[in-house]
């Protein structure tokens, strides 16, 4: 339980922070696709282990596979006339199909449930260390790249004119999403992980006019929703992953109500 709570506190705000730009850049489907494609990463890992006799942590294989996939999708979207959505769709379905076939060939079909839904209680100290490293990297990335990333999201051409490199930023950001998917897979599984990335920012966006409000709102939801979900699931004997997702859905509904009531807020920057 303690490990689960620590994982939630580390991954919640990390995913929320990334989710802000996943949301603003229209990459929700991208993060979903990466999460589902992790199945193939795990399957490939088993095959490599079987051939080589290695016994590497599956997270490493998922990390490598997700990063390759993220870079491939980015490259295809820049080098082909296909839309980002279309590229994500065929990469998503193709890699999931490959993963399921490989897992069934390996005779490990029973693993699929764990991959799809995760098991936060199996998180050990090594997982928490990985999550802490990821949280630090993501925070540092945002601390140094928030301005260029925002401008590149709003107006890539203007960002280029200001000496920024929107394409490089996009690749860097995509790699961070891929790494988060790989590290977070154990917590929520492929089906629910993208909810942790997409929902806090989506909820905060409903209730905020400003970037500052969006960041604070998303991080707050990302920080409190996982512990509430974990505690509720333990108290009511419910599955943990879905409980965390439902808390996020509740936060989304609350923010929509705030919007309906006209209470949208701007956490203003005092210029004086």
């Amino acid at each position: 339980m303690r490990h689960a709570l620590i994982s939630g506190l580390l991954l919640g705000p990390t995913c929320a922070l990334l989710g802000i730009f996943v949301n603003l850049r229209g990459m929700s489907f991208f993060s979903d696709a990466l999460a589902h494609s992790a199945i193939t990463g795990v399957a490939l890992g088993f095959m490599i282990d079987a051939w080589t006799g290695w016994t590497l942590d599956p997270t490493i294989y998922v990390l490598i596979f997700s990063c390759i996939l993220a870079l491939t999708m980015g490259w295809l979207s820049q080098r082909t006339p296909l839309s980002r959505d279309t590229i994500t769709a065929f990469t998503f379905t193709g890699s999931v199909a490959l993963g399921v076939i490989l897992i069934s060939l390996l005779g490990k079909s029973r693993m699929l449930e764990g991959l799809l839904f995760g098991s936060i209680y199996s998180n050990g100290p090594a997982d928490i260390a990985r999550q802490a490293v990821l949280a630090t990297i993501v925070f540092l990335f945002f601390l140094t790249q928030l301005r260029p990333l925002t401008l590149a999201t709003l107006d890539p051409e203007l960002a280029r004119a200001r000496g920024m490199r929107p394409a490089l930023l996009h690749y860097g950001f995509s790699l961070l999403v891929a790494a988060t998917v790989a590290v977070g897979l154990k917590m929520l599984g492929a089906l629910l992980l993208s909810a942790l990335i997409v929902m806090p920012a989506a909820a905060a966006r409903l209730a905020s006019h400003s970037l500052r409000g969006l960041i604070l709102g998303a991080c707050l939801i990302g920080l409190i929703a996982p512990p509430i979900g974990i505690s509720a699931s333990a108290a009511l004997n419910l599955p943990t992953g879905p409980s965390i997702v439902l808390v996020h859905v509740a936060a989304l509904a609350l923010c929509q109500m705030i919007r309906w009531l006209g209470l949208r807020f701007t956490i203003a920057n005092n210029l004086h």
Partner: peptide, 13 residues
């Protein structure tokens, strides 16, 4: 709906 105020727009430049 891009959540950015005018002052934040200036800041990102």
């Amino acid at each position: 709906n891009f959540p950015l105020t005018a002052s934040e727009y200036l800041a990102i430049h």
